[in-house]
Design a protein around this nucleic acid. Structure first.
Length: 441
RNA sequence: GCCCCCAUGGUGUAGCGGUUAGCACGCGAGGUUUUCAUCCUCGUAGCGGGAGUUCGACUCUCCCUGGGGGUACCA
């Protein structure tokens, strides 16, 4: 099996593209297949080296590696010219100067049920001759057969007037030359497949097996874009998602395992994945579920691993202790700063929290805590806990009446990791200093 | 306009002629709990509509409706 992922470098890698890449990768890794990466850069206007770099970066971050490539499509233009000339020589294609307006006029004249057929003008763009009779059938592993009657198809332009080839031609040729056995791509290419089949046929080549994946939509059912919070892989990375979580979520968007597992490792996915089980309907991207899955992965990570990722994500260092007491409270890497940033930056400023918990009673409790901690022996979790619980008992208060003022004194907010853990991580001196700060008039 | 594809709760999916329509997220109610989370329990909600085929349709066929894609000298 030889599969390929062929992104167009006209922008960052979209999560839809990431899923396509993932499915191809799973296919290759699940069997003993080969994954080829090809950059579809025939659109010289919109393709940029920066975008290529960005796509490569996104794939690497996701852990999607390839066996061959990246192959630049324009780098193969000599081969494209050769085959283009062959089609011209054999009469499968012709040069036409017909403009869009002329094509429209032709169709208006012949009615809606007649595709455009041009004359050989000897110059202009190259169009592929589509037979009037017959039909092209896309045998799709996921959808079954999709039949396209030739009468409805216009003779497609396969090369510009300057001779540079267009997508539908280049793709067919490159897949053929790379001996691709399975073309797995988005459903937006299904209609184009009929044209590619025609190119392949003119070339006398045997078409690969096709599988068109359902498209990804935003929560509103519209095309997924930045408007929906995030669309590119980099954006998800910046939002604090883990690549393995994103992969896991993406795999499940449009594919269901036979059992009902939700958290599935890449290895297991590769083992189970099959095109036959890919869903036919478009899927809406659900950020909440991604968050939940991400949280699961965050909690399952070894402390050192999570620490490393958070240090990379935040640009901080020495996070281990703070991470240890925050791990089970985070769903994304981005949750760390608001939850535990106070440990390094000092208390946050939350007037409402102070007002609510540092009133007369709160400050009295805080004073008791200060005294208890000051005279405490070793400043360990167990001792700290005992001390605070002692204050609760002595004051005849509810735990929260003592703990929350302490929390606000330390964190500046009413939310933080466990209070005993936080005190322990902060250490006696820092803890007392912050409490004194809150006690000061 | 024309061509193609799709249709199970709010979301992602399982189901592949006979099921109390399963699982997960979300949501709701409880429990655990020092906040927030986590965790546990229970609950909520679905086969778009209409004709057929069949003893029997979520499942097969057709139509409608809805959604999506294509129709570029973009990919």
């Amino acid at each position: 099996m030889r599969v390929r992922f062929a992104p167009s470098p006209t922008g960052a890698l979209h999560v839809g593209g990431a899923r396509t890449a993932l499915y191809n990768w799973l296919l290759a890794r699940g069997g003993s297949g080969t994954l080829v990466l090809r950059i579809e850069d025939t659109d010289r206007e919109r393709s940029t080296p920066e975008n290529v770099a960005q796509i490569l970066d996104a794939l690497q971050w996701l852990g999607i590696d390839f066996d061959e490539g990246p192959i630049s499509q324009v780098a193969r233009s000599e081969r494209h010219q050769e085959l283009l000339q062959q089609l011209l020589d054999e009469g499968h294609a012709y040069r036409s100067t017909a403009t869009k307006a002329e094509v429209d006029a032709f169709k208006a004249q012949h009615g809606d049920h007649r595709g455009f057929r041009g004359e050989d003008d000897g110059s202009g763009a190259v169009r592929l001759r589509v037979p009037d009779e017959g039909e092209s059938v896309v045998h799709d592993v996921i959808r079954g057969d999709a039949t396209f009657a030739h009468v409805h198809l216009d003779d497609p332009v396969i090369a510009r007037a300057d001779g540079s080839v267009l997508y539908n031609f280049a793709v067919a040729v490159d897949d053929m030359d790379a001996a691709i056995t399975h073309v797995v791509r988005g459903e937006d290419h299904l209609s184009n497949t009929a044209r590619q089949l025609l190119v392949l046929q003119a070339l006398g080549a045997t078409p690969p097996i096709y599988a068109h994946l359902p498209l990804l939509h935003g929560a509103d059912g519209k095309k997924l874009s930045k408007r929906h919070g995030a669309a590119s892989v980099q954006e998800f990375r910046d939002m604090g998602y883990l690549p393995e979580a994103l992969n896991n979520y993406l795999a499940l968007l449009g594919w269901g395992s036979e059992d009902d597992e939700t958290i599935i490792s890449a290895d297991e996915l590769a083992r189970q994945f099959s095109l036959e089980r890919v869903s036919k309907n478009p899927a809406r991207f659900d950020h909440q579920k991604l968050r939940w899955i991400n949280g699961r992965y965050m909690r399952a990570l070894a402390l050192d691993d999570l620490t490393k990722r958070l240090e990379t994500f935040t640009g901080r260092s020495g996070l281990r202790d703070a991470v240890a007491i925050s791990q089970e409270k985070m769903q994304t890497l981005a949750d760390f700063e608001p939850l535990a940033g106070f440990i390094f930056d000092g208390p946050a400023d939350d007037p409402k929290a102070r007002e609510k918990w540092l009133g007369e009673d709160g400050r009295a409790a805080l004073a008791d805590v200060h005294a208890a901690l000051e005279s405490l022996g070793e400043f360990t979790h167990a001792n700290v806990q005992q001390a605070l619980e002692g204050v609760v008992a002595a004051r005849g208060a509810k735990p929260k009446q003592v703990f929350q003022p302490v929390r606000v004194a330390l964190a500046g907010t009413a939310v933080s990791p466990g209070i005993f853990e936080t005190l322990t991580v902060l250490g006696r001196a820092e803890s007392l200093a912050r409490i004194e700060e809150s006690l000061a008039p």
